[in-house]
Every structure is written in C-alpha cells, then in structure tokens.
C-alpha cells in the first residue's frame, strides 16, 4: 500500500516514496533540502513550517506525504518571483517585523495567503491570517505595522483600480 506519489513542489513535479505517516515538513527539509519551513513544534501549533498547499497556508508538519498526491506545495523558496510574496516581503523588511527571523518565512506564507483572501473578500483582517504563527522576539509590533502597510497599499491599489470593496469587515 505504501507507494510512490507525485505532486508539484514549487512548480516542479516530483515523485517521492511515501513512508508511512511521514510528514511534508520532513520531506521538505530532509529530502528536498528546502529549509525555510522550520520544525518549531511538529504539532501544528507554532506556524514556523507554514507552506502553501493548493494555495492555502497550512502547517507542513500536519500534512502527511500520502495526502499530497496530485497537489501543489509552495514554500518561500518557490515564491521568490510571486508578486504577493514580494509585497509581503517588502512590508516585513521595511517595518523590521522580525528579529531572529526563524519564524519569518512561515509568517510570510500566511500573509501571502492572507492578502489573497483579502483581495477575494473572504477574510479582511490580516491579523487573523497570522493567528496561528508564533513569534517570540518582536512582540508583534513590527508585524502589526507591516500589516498596516499591507492593508494601506491594498486599499490604495483598489482605489486605483476603481474597485469599491468595503474593507470595514463583516
């Protein structure tokens, strides 16, 4: 029953053997050597291993490899040309929203997912998008300012594009 599955990792189709209930996190780090996803707790409670699975931010330590068949996984290594990522990255850097930075790729992925949901109107509050990511260094002050910057620029873009989304929340 334990066989090989194939899925897309950062745009490339890869095939890999499934080992029992092994996780996507270990696959990324040990096999694919993509170390931006980090094992902060291994039980889905810190967000340091957050990746995009079919475009949605999830903790890689709770995704088992057998669940990946036919799906798409993206890490920050694969988002380097993604416009949403670049906007998030810029906001985080300009607001010094990080100190040690160990958790930051996870925050960035959650925020990428967050601004996409903000655009589609599904969830307007970027603070909710990072409710599952823990940062121990900053006290979240820089993250709060980065979110403000992202929300402002999102609203500006919308105004420029003539969109009339109401961002006052639901």
């Amino acid at each position: 029953m334990n066989d090989t599955i194939s899925f897309k990792l950062n745009g490339e189709t890869i095939a890999c053997p499934v080992s029992g209930a092994g996780t996507l996190l270990d696959l990324l780090r040990d096999t694919a050597r993509l170390t931006s996803a980090r094992p902060g707790c291994r039980i889905g409670r810190c967000g340091a291993c957050t990746v995009l699975l079919d475009g949605e931010a999830v903790p890689a330590c709770l995704v088992m490899t057998w669940q990946l068949a036919g799906r798409q996984v993206e890490t920050v290594e694969g988002l380097q040309d993604d416009q949403d990522f670049l906007v998030v990255r810029d906001a985080l850097a300009r607001e010094s929203a990080l100190q040690c930075g160990y958790c930051t790729p996870g925050f960035a992925v959650s925020l990428v997912s967050g601004i996409r949901h903000q655009r589609s109107g599904q969830e307007t509050d970027l603070g909710e998008a990072i409710a599952g990511n823990l940062c121990r260094c900053t006290g979240y002050g820089g993250l709060s300012r980065a979110i403000q910057r992202l929300t402002d620029s999102c609203c500006r873009e919308d105004a420029a594009a003539g969109n009339d989304n109401d961002f006052s929340g639901d």
């Binding site: 780090r29 040990d30 050597r33 993509l34 170390t35 931006s36 996803a37 980090r38 890490t75 920050v76 290594e77 380097q80 990255r89 985080l92 850097a93 010094s96 990080l98 040690c100 930075g101 160990y102 930051t104 790729p105 960035a108």
Partner: peptide, 18 residues
Amino acid sequence: DLYRRIDGQLDYPTDLLD
C-alpha cells in the same frame, strides 16, 4: 540581512542538513 531571513536563505545551525 533581513531579506535573507524572510526568504529563508539564511541558514540557522539546525538548517545545516547539507
């Protein structure tokens, strides 16, 4: 250095799996 950290390009000691 901040960009390297955000991009996951800065190796922490426990990332030295290579």
